[in-house]
């Protein structure tokens, strides 16, 4: 069984600012407390195509995901490594992020896709964020018998964390807005 859900959110900030905030989301030290489940983010790879204005980036994200004790016992660790690949198309103004777990894959597969596009109703001032997450417990894994419960818990955790993520994004957008209008902070 796969658990999947979608979320949509409108930022009342232009695409340029929102995508700038997205890059800073995990890196700014002041967000570390809010996003305490993110332990580390490293850029592994990047490529810019100067003709098309496309930027490809691969980052490693280390997440602290403690589950209930019985899951910890089966899985044996509460750290999960994910790889996030991002494509920004500067010409058409779109940003797409795909994040997958690369550790614990024999138990669970999580894929999160986020897209930032100019909002169709106000393309120069607003940005629409579409997020899609799918969670699947491997049918033959030791977790299979409690798959539904684990998937549900995982999904709840994701919803909580994406709310925190939005809070951080809004904060950085405000900061960038103030910075660009020259207001000293």
């Amino acid at each position: 069984m796969v658990k999947a859900y979608r979320q949509e959110y409108t930022y009342k900030h232009p695409w340029e600012r929102v995508t700038s905030a997205s890059w800073r989301k995990f890196a700014d030290p002041e967000n570390k407390r809010t996003l305490s489940h993110i332990l580390e983010v490293d850029t592994l790879n990047h490529k810019l195509d100067p003709d098309s204005g496309k930027l490809h980036t691969t980052r490693a994200i280390t997440i602290h995901a403690p589950g209930p004790w019985f899951i910890r016992k089966i899985v044996g660790q509460d750290i999960c490594h994910c790889v996030e690949s991002t494509v920004v198309d500067g010409q058409s103004r779109s940003m797409q992020l795909t994040t997958r777990n690369i550790s614990l894959q024999k138990f669970i597969e999580v894929e999160e896709k986020i897209r930032y596009d100019p909002h169709p109703e106000n393309p120069d001032k607003w940005t629409i964020c579409r997020q899609q997450t799918s969670i699947q417990i491997k049918p033959l894994s030791a977790l299979a018998s409690m798959a539904e419960k684990v998937e549900q818990r995982c999904a709840e955790k994701f919803v909580q964390n994406s709310a925190k993520g939005r809070e951080v994004m809004e904060r950085i957008c405000k900061y960038l807005e103030a910075e660009s209008s020259g207001i000293p902070l």
Partner: peptide
């Protein structure tokens, strides 16, 4: 690196100046 990248992204890349890394 991230400080440099973030500055480049918001001051150049999003303004269409992507001719060089």
């Amino acid at each position: 690196y991230h400080t440099c990248f973030n500055r480049w992204y918001s001051e150049k890349f999003v303004k269409g100046q992507w001719d060089k890394q």
